[in-house]
């Protein structure tokens, strides 16, 4: 049951920053925040709606990178021609998150900041070596995606900061693929594998409390058993630890054999 709150709407980033600086909790789609408020799990005193802040929404690109505004719905990322052409894995991931309502209501920034461990987007962006840009009234800073989430639902964002956008380098990508296995309502295991001229990265999400990633010069440098052993699996309705660890092993093997076909 929702307790009393105040509500304001921002139309510029400055307004939004002023609001969060004064203690308002930001939201766009509300799929996680409003759900948590309905269950009584959180009770913010003031909300600031960011849906009208145009600067926070949209997909931009240059030769070497694609930048996605934090308030961009997943479905918009999935539909973006630029993303489909240069980051097909990201287009794929954002087209399978949840269901179509989640994809229109939910945003990239909302997903990242909520940091539900069973996330498709976070391991995908870790594998893509994305960099997050945050801003407060004091200034801005960048955080690597792999450093952003420290524990379930725990991210490196101060209450007075906004996640502004996500920058994904695209200059030297050779290979990108996401494999997912889902048993219950949310993903059970996600494996993102990205190869760039500078090296390959494999990231496992949803199985452990936080994503785990590995770097190697070639896909042959990854060992599915080692990756699986490095996970501390969450036990839940989808399975116990030994089962989940084996699922990771299987999915990583499948991802690597997919890469081997390409990178011969």
């Amino acid at each position: 049951m929702i307790t009393r709150f105040e509500h304001q709407r921002a139309t510029t980033v400055e307004q939004a920053l002023a609001a969060v600086a004064s203690g308002a909790v930001p939201y766009v789609g509300g799929t996680e925040l409003l759900a948590a408020m309905k269950l009584g799990l959180t009770a913010p005193e003031r909300l600031v709606d960011l849906k009208q802040v145009g600067e926070l929404r949209g997909v931009r690109s240059d030769d070497d990178s694609i930048t996605i505004g934090a308030a961009t719905p997943h479905a918009e990322v999935a539909a973006s021609l630029i993303v489909r052409e240069r980051l097909p894995m990201l287009a794929n991931v954002t087209s399978v998150i949840g269901n179509p309502r989640v994809r229109w209501q939910g945003t990239v920034g909302g997903n990242l900041c909520f940091a539900e461990p069973r996330s498709d987007l976070i391991p995908a962006l870790i594998a893509l070596r994305a960099r997050l840009r945050l801003r407060s009234q004091e200034g801005g800073r960048g955080v690597d995606m792999e450093s952003f989430v420290s524990a379930p639902f725990t991210v490196d964002r101060r209450d007075d900061e906004l996640l502004v956008d996500v920058v994904i380098p695209t200059g030297d990508l050779l290979f990108q693929q996401y494999h997912r296995l889902q048993i219950m309502e949310r993903p059970t295991v996600g494996v993102a594998l990205v190869g760039a001229a500078t090296g390959w990265r494999l990231c496992v999400g949803a199985a452990g409390y936080i994503p785990s990633w590995h770097d190697a010069p070639t896909p042959g440098g990854f060992d599915a058993d080692a990756v699986a052993d490095a996970i501390e699996p969450m036990e839940d309705a989808a399975g116990a630890a030994d089962y989940k660890r084996d699922l990771v092993r299987t999915l990583v093997s499948r991802a690597l054999s997919g890469a081997r076909k390409v990178d011969s």
Binding site: A35, K51, R101, V102, W104
Partner: peptide
């Protein structure tokens, strides 16, 4: 379900489907 997973409350807002059970009316 009242938790966005069953779809019974689906309406379109600006042409896009949303879970009306978890969407503020003022929005």
């Amino acid at each position: 379900c009242d938790t966005q997973v069953c779809g019974a409350c689906t309406v379109l807002v600006d042409g896009h489907p949303v879970s009306a059970c978890t969407y503020l009316a003022i929005d």
